[in-house]
Deep mutational scan, measured.
Amino acid sequence: IINNLKLIREKKKISQSELAALLEVSRQTINGIEKNKYNPSLQLALKIAYYLNTPLEDIFQW
């Protein structure tokens, strides 16, 4: 999986903590996703895309 979450999140000036709060997950979860240590569920990936107002395929590429 190619993961552009960190790049997109930083472009939008959103911290890991802010995104985690919006998604109701821990900051460690966001960190793990960004470091490719954790693959989000489809539901979480869709929520990330929604809150970042970015197409899912721009954030994650399988």
Rank of each mutant, 00 (worst) to 15 (best):
I1C: 15
I1H: 12
I1V: 10
I2T: 10
I2P: 11
I2C: 13
I2E: 10
I2V: 12
N3F: 03
N3L: 04
N3M: 04
N3G: 04
N3I: 05
N4I: 04
L5P: 01
L5W: 01
L5E: 00
L5Q: 01
L5R: 00
L5V: 09
L5C: 05
K6S: 07
K6D: 02
K6Q: 12
K6Y: 07
L7Y: 13
L7I: 13
L7K: 13
I8T: 06
I8R: 02
R9C: 04
R9A: 02
R9Q: 04
R9F: 04
R9T: 03
R9I: 03
R9L: 04
E10P: 04
E10G: 06
E10Y: 05
E10M: 10
K11Q: 14
K11S: 14
K11P: 02
K11D: 07
K11M: 10
K11C: 09
K11L: 11
K12T: 06
K12G: 03
K12I: 08
K12R: 09
K12V: 07
K13V: 05
K13H: 12
K13A: 06
I14N: 00
I14R: 03
I14D: 01
S15A: 08
S15H: 06
Q16T: 07
Q16N: 03
Q16Y: 04
Q16L: 11
Q16G: 05
Q16H: 05
Q16W: 03
S17F: 12
S17D: 12
S17A: 14
S17C: 11
S17E: 13
S17P: 06
S17N: 10
E18T: 11
E18Q: 12
L19E: 00
L19V: 01
L19F: 06
A20S: 07
A20L: 02
A20H: 05
A21G: 11
L22D: 08
L23N: 01
L23H: 00
L23Y: 02
L23T: 15
E24V: 08
E24G: 15
E24D: 13
E24K: 14
E24R: 13
V25M: 05
V25K: 03
V25P: 00
V25H: 03
S26H: 06
S26V: 02
S26P: 15
R27K: 15
R27G: 07
R27Q: 15
R27V: 15
Q28R: 14
Q28G: 14
Q28C: 12
Q28K: 14
T29A: 09
T29Q: 07
T29S: 08
T29W: 09
I30T: 00
I30Y: 08
I30G: 00
N31V: 15
N31P: 02
N31T: 07
N31A: 12
N31W: 11
G32N: 15
G32V: 10
G32H: 14
I33K: 01
I33R: 01
E34K: 02
E34F: 05
E34Q: 01
E34R: 00
K35A: 15
K35G: 11
N36H: 10
N36K: 09
N36V: 04
K37G: 07
Y38G: 06
Y38D: 05
Y38C: 13
N39G: 12
N39Y: 14
N39V: 14
N39W: 11
N39L: 14
P40E: 02
P40C: 08
P40M: 05
P40H: 03
S41M: 04
S41R: 06
S41Q: 05
S41T: 12
S41D: 09
L42T: 07
L42M: 14
L42H: 09
L42N: 07
L42I: 12
Q43N: 11
Q43C: 14
Q43E: 14
Q43F: 09
Q43W: 10
L44R: 02
L44E: 04
L44N: 04
L44H: 03
L44Y: 03
A45P: 03
A45N: 01
A45W: 11
A45V: 05
A45F: 03
A45M: 15
L46G: 06
L46W: 07
L46P: 00
K47L: 07
K47R: 14
K47H: 05
I48Q: 00
I48R: 00
I48W: 03
A49E: 03
A49C: 06
A49N: 01
A49W: 02
A49D: 00
Y50L: 10
Y50E: 13
Y50T: 07
Y51F: 13
Y51V: 15
Y51D: 01
Y51I: 15
Y51W: 10
L52H: 00
L52D: 00
N53C: 09
N53E: 15
T54Q: 05
T54Y: 05
T54M: 06
T54A: 07
T54K: 03
P55I: 03
P55M: 05
L56M: 13
L56A: 05
L56S: 03
E57S: 11
E57L: 09
E57H: 09
E57R: 12
D58G: 04
D58A: 09
D58T: 10
I59F: 05
I59C: 03
I59T: 02
F60Q: 02
F60N: 01
Q61P: 15
Q61M: 09
Q61V: 13
Q61G: 13
Q61I: 13
Q61L: 10
W62D: 09
W62V: 12
W62C: 14
W62E: 08
W62F: 15
W62S: 11
W62R: 09
